[in-house]
């Protein structure tokens, strides 16, 4: 082991520096490209309305203030109430979608990974193909369907929609994880006296928890960020989720850029934190299936 690392270091030590340096310069460029817009968002969000609207701009806020955040998070004023309501709605919809999605996806993914039944391939591709269809295509028929089901302006309409559109991906991700659990473990369990169901619950489920976590993150972030359906299905202010609500916020306070930047910052916090904490699973989920040895 030490031998191997040593020799690989020895190889890289004899450098073609040009490659390395161009790589570094490129990374610095990418870093600036990625981070500067976010930095400017945060800087703007701690400016007063007056300070933001200046030309040339204040590169650094002369009088930094947290007032924009305070206003959004204070339930005693109407802006705060509205914002917190959107926040809660988003959270409720995303969490429910995630939980139900996992419950439905787990058995389906397991079946796709393990069984060879007629039509299995066809089913699987139809599941996969769903990934290809644009949300807008489904918008109108689904809107009519939701109206017929009496779900317009309810969170149920969003949860049902997100579930469907999240499921193909969830199933695909989880299938990848199940594929990596040797089938011999279940066979051993069945010989040891377990039924097929017991083998699944007692042996396979605990081993697939990383997959379930990964799938959950994906599904949560997807639901949290979704805009098109929420924009079309929800017209009542009290049921709106954050991406839609923020737009309303923006039109009401047409020129309040610092407020808007504070709101987008707050909206991004949960997903970014979730991502940073569970990064390992997220990355694995993203690449699962697409990369094979």
């Amino acid at each position: 082991m030490t031998d191997a690392t040593f020799s690989s270091r020895a190889i890289t030590k004899r450098p073609i520096d040009w490659w390395r340096w161009s790589g570094r310069v490129f990374l610095v460029f990418l870093l600036l490209f990625t981070v500067l817009p976010m930095v400017w968002m945060v800087l703007t969000s701690i400016k007063t309305q007056f300070a933001a609207m200046q030309y040339p701009p204040q590169w650094w806020p002369a009088e930094p203030t947290l007032q924009n955040y305070a206003r959004l998070l204070d339930p005693s004023n109407s802006v705060g109430q509205e914002f917190l309501r959107y926040f809660w709605n988003s959270f409720y919809v995303a969490l429910t979608t995630t939980v139900i999605g996992v419950v439905v996806a787990v058995p389906a993914a397991y079946a796709f990974s393990r069984f060879r039944f007629p039509g299995r391939t066809f089913l699987f591709f139809s599941v996969l193909l769903r990934n290809m269809f644009p949300a807008v295509v489904f918008l109108m028929p689904l809107f009519l369907l939701m109206r017929w089901l009496g779900l317009v302006n309810t969170h149920g309409s969003l949860i049902l929609t997100y579930l469907t559109f999240g499921l193909p991906l969830s199933i695909w991700l989880l299938k990848g994880f199940y594929d990596n659990i040797p089938i011999q473990l279940e066979q051993a369990a069945r010989i040891d006296g377990a039924t097929r169901f017991q083998a699944f619950i007692l042996i396979v489920m605990p081993l697939s928890s990383p997959g379930i976590i990964a799938t959950s993150i994906f599904s949560f972030i997807g639901a949290w960020n979704e805009y098109v359906y929420a924009y079309t299905f929800l017209s009542k202010q009290e049921s709106m989720t954050l991406p839609v609500g923020i737009q309303r916020f923006f039109t009401e306070f047409a020129t309040d850029w610092p407020g808007l930047m504070a709101a987008t910052f707050l909206m991004s916090v949960p997903v970014v934190v979730l991502f940073l904490v569970l990064q390992k699973y997220f990355v694995r989920a993203l690449t699962e299936g697409a990369v094979k040895n």
Partner: peptide, 11 residues
């Protein structure tokens, strides 16, 4: 570098 991919397109 991954943060832009995670945040909402609306933001």
């Amino acid at each position: 570098l991954l943060i832009p991919y995670v945040v909402s397109a609306v933001a």
